[in-house]
Write a protein that binds this DNA or RNA. Structure first.
Lengths: 352, 352
DNA sequence: CTGTTAGCGCTTTCAG
DNA sequence: CTGAAAGCGCTAACAG
């Protein structure tokens, strides 16, 4: 079977003794073709190793069946991979393909990338960042159906999907409360990010729901790295009344906290229970004891974005009647390992 | 300026008072256009917010300026990101765009993906795996210029770029030798992978070059996870004559080794020097002491692949005269942190 | 149900 | 240096 390279719809029409229109119809699964003809055409297509040229189709229909996936910069986090995979899987299910552009957080490049995607008549554009934050996008994005992943624009005028930080913080804290802890430390991030504020609100709310007074002393603000967890654990454990459990802003800081606690002679989770955030497999699953943590819904966000784009077909809704674009928060599931300790629930619960 | 949406080359030709041919020429930076005309056309293009439709161009020229990037499955490693980024950056520099497809290690899907890329007339295809291994590809890939990243086919009939495992193993071992160590343990992988064999060959060769006899007792085969490093360290340190330094197959196993050694009461790197492999930032940089390790050239492989594809334009070299496709090995640079210990070189060197 | 006929927007001869 | 004309391969009416 030779390289196809140049058999067109005309060739197959001729060889099948039909018109090009008919060939086009079978190509597009039109019902208006007799089974006999359809079979005949299909047959020739197979023999001739025919492949439709997508460029011709796009030119004619003005639809490329491609989706642009633009990222600010692919940081050194493994999260990127999950988001891309989620988007990719969803796209493929719809017969769409992803055009990937990484703009290295360069504004000029971002605009150029978007223009390039316009030229290619993509059916929608996804802009993804690698941690939950506010983003700034050039006005030109509004020329396409679009959706933001793990970020949002100040005025919320663009649809977006982000992790539910509040629920994450709440769930983590609640787990510790369930374990019987009442002095729960929180090594939070010190940067102005949704993750910081959302998780803290969740923490505070969970305490309130359980009737545990909020003690600001138990919350320390550090960076997001392992060193920060190390420092934070030191701060917390040197308190007159140290916590019996610690919720760490992320797995990396939990990793640092492990080191600090170990140095201080504590045995985990017997002496101190720990819950992290992010479920960075490579850390969480391999720390000893295994780190109980919350998972960021990266895969789900990627998939959600694609599905959202595809579900509302050409609705570049007229500014006037436009309904507010959705701002979706996806839940962060709890990943149980060992660091949160074993159930003391029954025991403690009764004493509450 | 309103949505462009539909201004064509004809519109701008008319408004500029020239023929479409001329417009096309300025679009393609043809020298055969007077400066005056060119300026005039450019002017109109800007005013009218014109954007060339890539589908039309592709249809006509049969070149899409797109490159397919197909992956077997995006594992939970952060490596994927680097390869993609390397490819992406190189592609953008050439004005090309990446079409991304993840096939989830599904053969049917892989073939479908390749066909889809053929339909889109991509200029080349990159197939990447997330760890160095042998790959099997459907014959259809040979219809396009292609290159493999981090993998190869049995008969080496496809060009490929992989990490230089031998050099990595050699470099790691040599560093330890330089530090004065003569009993160097090796916690190797137990799977049949190029990484296992290549690194071990490098290890053996370095020892030989330094006149240190190879002692098979010092090499233990474990899995690739943290637990394996833990087990391996236990095996090695319980030897009658334990090693004074350990080369770990990867950073994850080094992480496990750290735990084991610490439990046995050793202080790193004072008592035992450690070198890892992979430079998984998240582990290596945050372990204490920081892990000295080798970096896998993922970014470089991604970039190399794109450049290779672009450099040999349409040369689907005739099977007859075809020169052997290149099998490139890219070096794994050494990343120095603290775990390899401080220089004892001078001292020990003289006693060698 | 099916053949024919216009183009989609751009590039590329071919004459000037 | 520039205009006109002929398609690239496919879809979408429009008549049968």
């Amino acid at each position: 079977m030779a390289r196809n390279q140049d058999v067109t719809i005309h060739d197959i029409a001729r060889r099948a003794g039909v018109g090009v229109g008919t060939v086009s119809r079978v190509l597009n699964d039109s019902p208006n073709v007799s089974d006999a003809t359809r079979a005949q055409v299909r047959q020739v297509m197979a023999e001739t190793n025919y492949r439709p040229k997508s460029a011709a189709k796009t030119l004619r229909t003005r639809r490329s069946s491609a989706i642009a996936f633009i990222t600010d910069e692919i940081a050194s986090t493994p999260f990127a991979v999950d988001t891309i995979r989620g988007a990719q899987d969803a796209a493929w299910q719809h017969g769409k393909i992803l055009l990937l552009v990484n703009t290295n957080a360069n504004e000029k490049l971002l605009e150029a990338a978007i223009e390039s995607m316009l030229d290619r008549q993509v059916e929608g554009l996804i802009f993804a960042t690698w941690f939950h934050r506010r983003a700034k996008l050039p006005p030109i994005v509004r020329q396409l159906p679009n959706v933001l992943v793990d970020c949002y624009v100040e005025d919320r005028s663009l649809p977006s999907v982000v992790p539910d930080e509040f629920q994450g913080g709440y769930t983590a804290t609640e787990l510790l409360l369930r374990q019987g802890h009442r002095r729960i430390g929180f090594i939070n991030n010190n940067e102005d990010q949704p993750a910081r504020w959302g998780r803290q609100q969740g923490y505070v709310r969970a305490l309130a729901d359980w009737g545990v007074p909020f003690n600001p002393e138990l919350v320390t603000f550090q960076g997001g790295a392992a060193e920060s967890g190390y420092a934070g654990a030191n701060v917390l454990m040197r308190l007159p009344e140290p916590p019996t459990a610690i919720f760490c802003f992320n797995d990396r800081s939990a990793m640092g906290a492990y080191d600090a606690l170990r140095e201080m002679g504590f045995v985990l989770p017997r002496d101190i229970a720990i819950v992290g955030f992010d479920n960075q497999e490579i850390i969480a699953a391999h720390l000893r004891p295994g780190l109980t943590t919350l998972q960021l819904p990266h895969y789900e966000m990627g998939a959600w974005a694609v599905n959202y784009l595809l579900q509302k077909p050409y609705d570049l809704s007229p500014p006037g009647l436009a309904s507010a674009p959705p701002q979706v928060k996806l839940p962060c599931p709890l990943i149980l390992r060992e660091s949160h300790g074993t159930r003391r629930e029954e025991v403690q619960r009764s004493s509450t």
